[in-house]
Design a protein around this nucleic acid. Structure first.
Lengths: 196, 196
DNA sequence: GCTGGAAGTTACAGACCGGTAACACCCTAG
DNA sequence: CTAGGGTGTTACCGGTCTGTAACTTCCAGC
């Protein structure tokens, strides 16, 4: 019952939630729609009444993931209202926590690795959502008073992304253990530099 | 004929080379053994005479990739004999070049994203090979006279890994464009720090 | 209680998957 | 020339995949 999620809610929600969970754990091509609907306590016909294809289901799952990630940013603002630097450090801590959460990397990155057709609908939303995330991090860095906000945001972002794949390949005891130290060091270093 | 590689050589070599190319382009689960053998100008029976299963073929492809990557390091030594710092900068340039080579990330990272079974044979060799690569970069940093060699090597490694997935998700015009600047800045910064 | 729509059930289509069996072929070593 | 191993060919197995059709069952709103 590892892939449970059979709470009584509307079938569409159950399918979406179950699919998110199973795609995350087993990969997109590693899960069939039959397995999803069975784990969601429903059946294939119901899935195809709510989603016109597996591809559309994939896209909806990615959007749901992004929505959840977006909510995370709001918790930073709620926790440290107005203090953008504290929010940036909260982001670092949250990122580190995600590294130890499980051995699976970013769902969008994994999806991009699996769905190689250049015009696959999922690729569009992956790019869109990743760019939105970057924009948020850049804004946070800028509002925290950091000079080269874009460069810091991109560096942190690449470090985090790299740490996630590192966890996936060599495990949580590899280079990713140093992520917090790297990130904090970068923030200090960028704060020290003259604002450009 | 994009997946050609039908030069006349021994079938096993053709299969291995073709499989490497197709796994890289289309992902592991996105390519069937029939497609591989057809592109390699042979047939399924011959494949199964040389590889006991698709999984073993995958493992051999990963090992072949690692061997090619290993040869890359030798070119650094050949190009800048004894000058470890120059070799480190050569690594940075080579890494940057790989970012622009194509939109696909690291084959091992992609394989790890696709093959989610925790005891899949490929996962063992991925971990083994990634750890070997890390060891080489650490050694290079150390021999270049850098104090915190492990930390620099891990940081560079995470940055590079992150840049590869960034290319795969948002494209080559995203944060990965700053990779060289980030890496060079880090090297300078670590060289400036007191040796520990 | 009736009705209408959502959800469940069963069966199926058509394609593809990894892997195997049986047999014909070719080409080189002796 | 001949023997034998590597290779090619065809057909097949059992399973899984996405997606659909036809039908039944359930349940909430009236």
């Amino acid at each position: 019952m590892t892939d449970g999620v059979v709470e009584r809610s509307r079938p569409r929600d159950r399918i979406l939630e179950t699919a998110r969970d199973m795609f995350h754990k087993h990969g997109i091509k590693g899960v069939g729609v039959d397995a999803i609907t069975e784990a969601a306590g429903t059946n294939k016909m119901t899935l195809y009444r709510h989603f016109e294809s597996k591809d559309e289901l994939i896209v909806e799952c990615l959007r749901a993931n992004a929505a959840k990630a977006g909510a995370m940013w709001d918790t930073f603002e709620a926790e440290f209202p107005g203090d953008k630097l504290a929010q940036l450090h909260a982001w670092v801590r949250k990122a580190a926590a995600m590294l130890n959460a499980d051995g699976r990397g970013c769902d969008m990155a994994n999806a991009a690795a699996e769905l190689t057709e250049p015009d696959h609908p999922a690729r569009l939303v992956i790019k869109e959502l990743k760019e939105a995330q970057r924009e948020r991090l850049v804004t946070l860095c800028r509002d925290a008073g950091i000079g080269q906000a874009e460069l810091l945001a991109d560096t942190l972002s690449l470090l985090f992304e790299g740490a996630r794949v590192s966890v996936q390949t060599v495990g949580a005891e590899g280079p990713s253990t140093q992520f917090v130290r790297m990130a904090e060091g970068l923030i200090v270093s960028f704060r020290g530099a003259a604002a450009g």
